[in-house]
Amino acid sequence: MTRRIALPRRWVLAAIGTTVAAPAPVRAQAWPSGPIRLVVPFAPGGTTDVMARLVADRLGPRLGTTVIVENRAGAGATIGSTFVAQAAPDGHTLVMSNIASHGIAPSLYRNLRYDALKDFAHVAMVTRNPSVMVANPDFEAKSFAEVVRVAKARPDGLDYGVSGAGSSNHLLGLRVAKAAGIRLTPVFYRGAGPAMTDTIAGVVPLMFDGLPSATGHIREGRVRGIATSGAERAAAVPDIPTFKELGLDIVSYQWFGISAPAGTPAEIVQRLNREIRAVLADTAVMQRFDQLGGTTLEMTPDQYTAFIAEEIAVWAPVVEASGARVD
Rank of each mutant, 00 (worst) to 15 (best):
L206S: 07
Y189G: 08
F188T: 11
A179K: 13
F208Y: 13
D198W: 03
P212G: 00
A179M: 09
A195D: 04
G181K: 05
L206P: 03
A201G: 03
R183A: 15
T185G: 10
V176Q: 11
I200N: 00
P186V: 09
A179E: 15
G193E: 08
T197K: 14
A192L: 07
S213M: 04
A177N: 09
V204I: 08
T215Y: 03
P212Y: 00
R190E: 14
Y189S: 10
D209W: 01
G216C: 00
A192G: 15
L211F: 01
A201R: 08
L211Y: 00
G193M: 06
G202D: 10
P205G: 10
S213Y: 04
P194V: 10
D198Y: 04
P194I: 11
K178E: 15
F208R: 02
V204H: 09
G210W: 03
V176I: 14
M207N: 11
D198R: 06
F208M: 12
R190M: 10
L206R: 06
A201M: 06
P194Y: 10
T185C: 07
A195P: 01
V203R: 14
G191A: 04
V176C: 12
F188M: 14
G202V: 05
Y189K: 05
P186L: 12
V187Q: 14
G202T: 04
G193A: 09
M207Y: 01
V187I: 15
S213T: 05
D209K: 01
G193L: 12
L211H: 00
M207W: 00
T197P: 00
A179R: 14
T185S: 15
G191H: 07
V176M: 12
G210A: 08
G216R: 13
D209C: 07
P205W: 12
A214E: 04
P212K: 01
R175F: 06
F208S: 04
G193I: 12
S213W: 07
A177R: 10
Y189E: 12
I200A: 01
L184H: 09
Y189A: 09
A180I: 04
P186Q: 11
V187N: 10
K178D: 13
R175D: 13
G210M: 05
G216P: 01
K178Y: 04
D209A: 15
A195G: 14
G210K: 03
G181P: 06
Y189F: 15
L211T: 02
D209S: 15
A177Q: 10
V187E: 13
G181L: 09
R190N: 14
G210F: 06
A201I: 01
T185N: 15
R175N: 08
I200C: 02
S213G: 08
G202F: 04
P212Q: 01
A179W: 09
T185A: 13
G181D: 08
A177S: 11
A195Y: 06
M196V: 01
A214C: 04
M196L: 15
A201D: 12
A177H: 12
P205E: 14
D198A: 11
F208I: 07
F208K: 03
T185E: 14
Y189Q: 10
F208Q: 12
I182T: 06
D198I: 02
G191P: 05
A195R: 01
A177T: 11
P212F: 02
A192D: 08
A214N: 05
F188K: 03
L211N: 00
